[in-house]
Amino acid sequence: MHSAYYRLGDDLYAERFGLGFEHLSAGQRFVHRPGITFSQQDNVAEALDSINSAMVHYDDCYAGLTDWKRPLMVSTLTLQRLIGMTSKTFGRRRRIVSMSSIALIRPMFGGDTLYVETEVLATEPVDAHLGRASLLTRGYNQRGEQVAELRYVAELWHGAAGPDVIAGASASDEERFLSHARREDGAWVEQTGLFFEDLRQGETFVHSPRKTLLAEEATLHALRAMEWQPQSHDHAFAQALGLAAPVVPQTWGIGVAVALSTRTFGRVTVNLGWTDVEFGADLMPGDTLEARSMVEGTRLSGSRPDQGVVTVLTEARNQRGEMVNRYRRALMVYRRGANPYARAGY
């Protein structure tokens, strides 16, 4: 149906997610994956960060005396994730035009898992670059019970339009690169990552999206990692060193580079380790990272017949093209067939 990769050259591919408006038509149904499990910590953070005074979200003693008997998930957190979890299919959305209804059918609690599906109700061209789609998005919990329903209109870029167009690139028609798999009932299920058999030595993948690192999240990661040396969080100390702001922890930079690669390596079962880790330019708040990985080798696992071992060389660069970090990583990846995806609704 739609390729998640664009061919840039021999053995060079760029990830690109989200269907162009021209690929949408009334009656299509999309199954968005992965799901996400809500925690009570998510609930507390959302309530406090948004100055939500309804104590049913974070006072366990009070909530225990209500009809719910436990803290109730903030409803707008469910709404945010209903929209956010559709991004693999509707990642070319320019904006939401309107929402005609937001229905909360069942409550969500900490420990519940949200799964999302969308039906395209109608489409309407706007101009040569944009179109509008009327969408019906439904949320379900881990028991298959519907918890929410959202009707809205979204404006989406055509595939050949928008700020992320890759000049001179064409979509690959290889089956391994399909962004969705057709289910027996006709629904399209989003896919994440390539199977072991689909990873070929010598191929390079430019990962998408990029990520801009904010000062606040860099400091938070440093503190939570107990990286308490002053240059990680003390602005006055950093300025005395001639820096504009505290530096971003280098280990978090590795973590970001690894995470950015999961759209290709998303079928990983476990990381086995890193070697030859190099650091280049200091990673500073406000920098935007882009990662790319080359597959250096593959072999079948001797102990796990449903998996294989893949070795990749990944490099992350900032917005100026400077190398920030580079490393080799060995990871285990599921093979086709014997894996948990179908059983889990993936």
Rank of each mutant, 00 (worst) to 15 (best):
R292S: 09
A103F: 08
L130Y: 00
N52S: 14
R317I: 07
N271K: 10
F195D: 08
F279A: 06
K211P: 03
R151S: 06
R326G: 05
H23R: 12
N52A: 11
G286M: 09
L243E: 09
Q250W: 08
L331I: 12
V31N: 10
L114I: 00
Y5P: 04
E46V: 14
L65P: 06
F21D: 00
W68S: 14
Q319G: 14
M73S: 06
S25Q: 14
T123D: 05
A245T: 07
E119D: 13
D59V: 07
T288R: 00
T66I: 14
R210A: 15
D112N: 05
G193E: 09
M294L: 09
D287R: 07
V268A: 13
R183H: 15
F90S: 02
P340S: 12
E278Y: 08
R343P: 11
A342L: 15
I105C: 00
T262P: 09
R267C: 02
T251E: 05
H158P: 00
L114N: 01
A169K: 01
D112M: 04
F205V: 06
L12K: 09
V147N: 00
F279Q: 06
L121A: 04
V189K: 14
E190F: 10
L12Q: 11
A330Q: 15
L104I: 08
P340A: 09
F30T: 01
S232C: 14
A316I: 04
L104Y: 13
A291C: 04
Q28I: 04
G242V: 11
T86E: 05
R138V: 04
N52I: 13
H158T: 00
L121Q: 03
S3V: 00
M99I: 12
N339E: 07
T89I: 07
R143Y: 02
T37M: 03
A257N: 00
T137H: 03
A218M: 08
R304V: 05
D198A: 13
M332W: 08
L194G: 10
E217L: 09
E227F: 10
R343W: 13
G144R: 04
V268M: 15
I36S: 07
E216P: 13
H23D: 08
A128I: 05
P107M: 03
V258R: 02
E15N: 08
Q307S: 11
Q201S: 15
S75W: 06
Q307R: 15
A26I: 01
L220H: 10
Q229P: 02
G273T: 05
E203L: 07
T212A: 05
A169F: 05
A244T: 14
G297T: 10
A215H: 10
Y152A: 09
N52W: 11
T192P: 02
V277S: 00
M323T: 12
D60H: 12
G321N: 10
H23Y: 05
R143T: 06
D198K: 08
Q250F: 11
T192Y: 11
S100F: 06
T251Q: 06
L48M: 15
Q201L: 14
G20C: 05
Q41F: 03
S293F: 01
T311I: 11
G202T: 08
R320L: 13
L12E: 07
D42N: 08
E216L: 12
Y62C: 09
R335M: 14
I51E: 15
V268H: 11
